[in-house]
Amino acid sequence: MKQVELVNGDLRFPALMAGEGEPVILLHGFPDTYENWAVQINAIAEAGYTAIAPALRGYAPSCQPGNGDYSLYAAVDDLMVFAAQLGGRVHLIGHDWGAAVGYLACAQAPETFCSFSALAIPPLRRLPQALIKVPEQVLLSGYMQFFQLPIAPERWLKRGDLSGVESLWQRWSPDWDPAMYLDNAKHTLAEPGVIPAALAWYRSLFKVWKKEHRKARAWLGRDIATPTQILIGENDGCMSPRLLEHTLVESDFTAGVELQTLAGAGHFLHLEKPEEVNRHLIRLLKSTECDCSL
């Protein structure tokens, strides 16, 4: 495994990379770091692929945009540039924000993605309506409203040894000791500008008047023509598994979709149950091989 960089304009995204073969991009979420994909990177590389996990926009000082654009539209643009740099067609795996970016990217440019694995996030297309039918999600998502406030969220996350970050990990993946994974996340989030950037992703969601927001919202109405699997931990304390009853509609996925529910896992399921998750990830990669080679 080696440290590399992906580039979009003047933004430089640190990344971990290993293996040879069809490229597989892994996108992390909040409050996490690309470094925590290491176990998946090694497993995917051993299976015969090139695995590369970049930092999301803002999660390193070198990829914090001067214009402050942390919209999902901009994040999809980053991903499309990465895919082009890796040969034009790639497999995609995303957790949390990475999964949200993946749903939009696959809807917008399905020809770019050989397969898509979404971890911990249900399909976005019908999510707004599902919130009405799964009221506990409004409570679980209360942190998103809190993140709209100025100053206070930054202070809460940074207090002590980033105890706010630790609190979210404990709440979202209960009854699990994250050990070094949490330490890795804290190390990334402690870098200059990263916490404000991470919060800016959430604040951008509510800027509905922005043209970038309108463009990304238009992609939500499209079917996804990429073979897709969704992996959810049954004990997820961030996104209620019950949302899938109202968001997973097979006809929205014209190339097929599968659901895998992991017993005893929470929001960070790929870290809690790496062998089981890796088995599902590699199975989909093997079943969707295409001309994506570097």
Rank of each mutant, 00 (worst) to 15 (best):
M1P: 00
K2Q: 03
L11P: 04
R12T: 11
R12M: 03
F13N: 02
P14Q: 12
M17T: 07
A18G: 02
G19T: 08
G19K: 12
E22L: 10
E22I: 09
I25L: 02
F30A: 11
P31G: 04
E35S: 12
A38F: 05
V39C: 09
I41Y: 15
I41Q: 14
A43Y: 01
A43F: 00
A45D: 07
E46A: 15
G48K: 00
Y49M: 10
A53E: 06
R57M: 04
G58A: 10
Y59C: 02
C63A: 11
Q64L: 00
P65A: 03
D69E: 02
D69P: 10
S71Y: 00
S71K: 05
A75Q: 15
D77E: 13
M80T: 14
V81I: 13
F82W: 03
Q85Y: 04
L86D: 09
V90I: 11
H91N: 01
I93R: 11
H95F: 02
D96S: 01
G98P: 09
A99Y: 00
C106P: 13
A107K: 15
A107D: 06
Q108V: 02
A109C: 14
A109V: 03
F113W: 04
C114F: 09
C114I: 04
S117C: 04
L119S: 11
A120I: 02
P122Y: 03
P122R: 07
P123C: 05
L124W: 09
R126E: 04
L127T: 15
L131P: 06
K133V: 07
P135C: 07
L139W: 09
L140M: 12
L140W: 12
G142P: 00
M144L: 08
Q145F: 10
F146R: 00
Q148H: 03
L149A: 15
I151G: 03
A152Q: 02
E154R: 06
R155F: 14
R155C: 06
W156M: 08
R159K: 14
D161M: 00
L162F: 12
L162W: 03
S163F: 08
S163W: 02
V165L: 14
P174S: 06
P174A: 00
W176A: 08
A179K: 13
M180T: 13
Y181W: 14
Y181C: 06
L182Q: 05
D183R: 09
H187F: 06
T188C: 12
A190R: 14
E191F: 01
P192D: 03
A197R: 05
L199S: 02
Y202K: 10
S204V: 04
S204K: 01
L205C: 12
V208F: 08
K210F: 03
K211L: 05
K211W: 06
A216R: 07
A218S: 14
D223A: 14
I224V: 15
A225Q: 10
A225P: 06
P227A: 14
I230W: 11
I230S: 01
I230F: 15
L231I: 15
I232E: 07
D236C: 05
G237T: 05
C238H: 13
S240V: 06
R242L: 09
L243P: 07
L244R: 06
T247K: 00
E250A: 15
A255G: 03
E258L: 03
E258Q: 11
Q260C: 15
H270Q: 12
E272P: 00
P274E: 10
R279L: 09
H280Y: 05
H280S: 11
L281G: 02
L281W: 11
L281M: 13
R283G: 08
R283H: 12
S293N: 14
